[in-house]
Nucleic acid binder design. Sequence first.
RNA 1: GGUCGCGUGGCCGAGUGGCUAGGCACAGCUCUGCAAAAGCUGCUACUGCGGUUCGAAUCCGCACGCGACCUCCA
Length: 500
Amino acid sequence: MSVPTHGPLFLTNTLTRKKEEFVPLRPPHVGLYVCGPTVYSDVHLGNVRSFLTFDVLYRWLTHIGYNVRYVRNITDVGHLVGDVDEGEDKIAKRARLEQLEPMEIVQKYTNGFHDVMRLFNVLPPSIEPTATGHLIEQIGMVERILKSGYGYEANGSVYFDVSKYAEKHAYGELSGRKIDELMTNTRDTEGMDEKRSPLDFAIWKKAEPQHLMKWPSPWGEGFPGWHLECSAMSTKYLGLTFDIHGGGMDLKFPHHECEIAQSVAADGVAPVRYWMHGNMLTVNGRKMAKSEGNGFTPEELLSGNHKLLEQGYSAMTVRFFMLQSHYASTLDFSNAAMQAAEKGLERLMAALTTLDALTPVATFDPAHDTTLDALIKSANAYMNDDLNTPRAIAVLFEGIPVINNAAAKREDRSGFSAEQLSRWREFYHGIAGDVLGLQHEQRVVANDRALDGLVQEFIRMRAEAKARKDFAASDAIRDKLVAFGIVLKDTKEGTTWERA
RNA sequence: GGUCGCGUGGCCGAGUGGCUAGGCACAGCUCUGCAAAAGCUGCUACUGCGGUUCGAAUCCGCACGCGACCUCCA
């Protein structure tokens, strides 16, 4: 099988700020690394968007025939509260506040993160390494950086020497920053005399005696710097140079810039061939962020129990909503937009159900083949064009009238042959399901069968009433059911029901 | 202040130098006992002002407005 099977894939490489054809280092293998969460609190919707973006990338790469090793880390140490390497560790702080062991915090929020990912139908990565599980690798990397002369030890901590690095390498190339501008704009450096320059960053940090999260190292007890883990773990699992590194736009600087510098300093090669950055989810035009206090958790979203939410929205509605915009654009969350997405998704999923329920006819429409060929072609082209999911979704909608038409009309030639049906189903389930990860909501849970049996009985009674033209009785049944949130739909095949 | 980006129809949101995404909403019609659902039809936008061009919403300049990053953040 040739790779890729769906034509060349183009991705926007934020390193060059251009759309480039994606050619992996060692096809059919693709190495993909995505910065995962720091597990010190609940993930919010903005975080979800980022993981969703790379979920679709992972799904698409797989769909077009690549063998993807997807590494997404869990940051469970080293991420400090403040800036300039002086604050408290985020997890340690949370542990103190919640009066738990740091690892209990890590476990708690890792579990929560996994639950949320499952809820949004985000696939698990191939490897989900933790920073604390890779202390050896990180210490090794610090040693290599020291050996190459780009790090220095000060009072039990080790810092990366940005100025020295910038003499020979392009520090700032990813984020478009110039070193002297960075120097000018940096805030006061008082109280940080361990660092030679405010731009330097910790790759190993000395731990105070009371510090809970610390490990022995050649420089004494301490813990690794935040940026280091991604470099160490991506190197370990994907090699010195790998294909794609993804993350949120806000990680571009300094996090990813530091990753590049560390890898080049330690191993002499640029670590990443294609950098990809997802854009931010905004609320009323402002970035959703924990510090802004405008984020909501998936639980609040589902229940609608938040001052910014007019109602609850399902995870699939959110997924669909997010995929209706391009990953590189900011996306503004609003109730009106969510309600529109809810309706749109409903229509799409209803069409899928209709398609699955269609029965083949003898006098089918031969045009369904050419129509489908066109849909397939453009859907693939759009996905290959830097993951244009909104366009791919639009393609799915283009075929919906064809499906609905076939279902609504029994007499004409709008029907499908058995072969056409299987091809259409394969396409719709492939794009909507496998690639975009949209799935039916499980709206009714435990007593689904009991409820269905009950409603079917009412439908039967109503049909009897209609048969004897007792419309008062039939309407009464329908209205009663509506009051209970059950909506009846009359079709040529009979009456179906769904929840309002 | 520096760097980067954005400004599209009632709303959300794609996009290309000429071939008028899609969703939601709205209106009319068809189907239906009625309604819902479904189908058909309609709704032609691109912040402002200049410029390049046969032709620009799409390229360039300026202005205005908004945002992101520059400090932890997906």
